[in-house]
């Protein structure tokens, strides 16, 4: 069985710093593996453990050369190969162009894949679009919001999906793409020989040429969307902070709630007015 694992390196969003001009300060911001991709890797490794040794996992990422460190870390955990899709021409890609690029790389390196596993979201863009876009490019089915797998054999997999209103169980046959949500598990430690394996492994590097894409298909040129304006989202609430005694704090809370809920009554009367009009 062959599994393509798709991962992304993202800036650590819990630690964003801003310049005076409200642009993001990129220097000194640490890059991490997208947290949802850790769950994707975990699912791939669990599948590998549950079947037999005959499972090959290849991790794919699109990004700058330093992203190969992340691929080596995954190899130390039990992933077999790493593929870095890297080319200056890929810069500025939106999810449409990214889906096309990653799909082309998988087709080039692993055309006989059974499963593609992605994280549900990336914490930087949070579009949840790249996984389905890869599946669309390859013309295969997808299962999103995957929480865990129940059963797996050579032909199909039974999965649990966590949706807004409940838990859905689906059975799907290969080839198939999965987008994985977080699940609870113990973080993996590297294999005993993992670090050595990782340092010895050769990371395959692919350019646009290598995967048969023209410059106009990739990066900014190949992207139907573009950012016309970016600005910082500043709160419009006027923070007033009070450090008072317990008694005074409770009193303040009561007064503020009365003040705010008073305007709530106004809103309610507006609604009743509207309902009267509707009738």
């Amino acid at each position: 069985m062959k599994i393509a694992l798709c991962v992304k390196q993202v800036p650590d969003t819990t630690n964003i710093k801003w310049t005076e001009n409200n642009t993001m300060q990129r220097e000194g911001v640490e890059s991490i593996i997208n947290p949802y991709d850790v769950y994707a890797a975990e699912l791939a490794l669990k599948i590998k453990e549950s079947i037999d040794k005959d499972v090959e996992i290849t991790a794919f990422t699109m990004g700058p050369m330093q992203a190969s460190d992340m691929l080596r870390k995954l190899i130390s955990l039990g992933v077999d190969n790493g593929v870095l899709i890297s080319d200056r021409k890929f810069a500025g890609a939106d999810t449409y162009a990214t889906g096309k690029t990653i799909a082309a790389a998988i087709k080039t390196v692993m055309p006989d894949f059974d499963l593609i596993i992605c994280g549900q979201f990336a914490v930087d863009g949070d579009t949840a679009q790249t996984g389905p876009s890869i599946a669309g490019n390859l013309g295969i089915s997808q299962v999103t919001y995957v929480k865990s797998f129940e059963k797996i054999d050579k032909k199909s997999i039974v999965l649990k999906r966590e949706l807004d209103d409940g838990i859905e169980t689906v059975k799907a046959s290969y080839p198939l793409l999965l987008c994985v949500l977080q699940d609870t598990f113990e973080p993996r430690r590297p294999l005993i020989n993992g670090i050595k394996l990782a340092s010895k492994s050769e990371i395959k590097i692919l350019s646009a040429d290598d995967i048969g894409l023209n410059p106009e298909d990739v990066g900014l040129k190949g992207s139907p969307t573009f950012v016309s304006r970016a600005y910082r989202n500043l709160s419009n609430h006027n923070a007033q902070k009070y450090e008072l005694s317990v008694e005074e704090s409770a009193e303040l809370l009561k007064n503020k709630l009365e003040e705010y809920c008073h305007s709530e009554f106004d809103l309610k009367s507006d609604n009743s007015q509207k309902e009267a009009n509707d009738a």
């Binding site: 709160s235 609430h237 006027n238 923070a239 902070k241 009070y242 008072l244 704090s249 409770a250 009561k254």
Partner: peptide, 28 residues
Amino acid sequence: DPEAQIFDIADVGIVGDFFDIIPKFLQK
């Protein structure tokens, strides 16, 4: 925590312990 980020987006920030303030509020 007076430094909590939540105060940056609040209209009213009350620095204090929930377990002290709420029982007091409920008595009112």
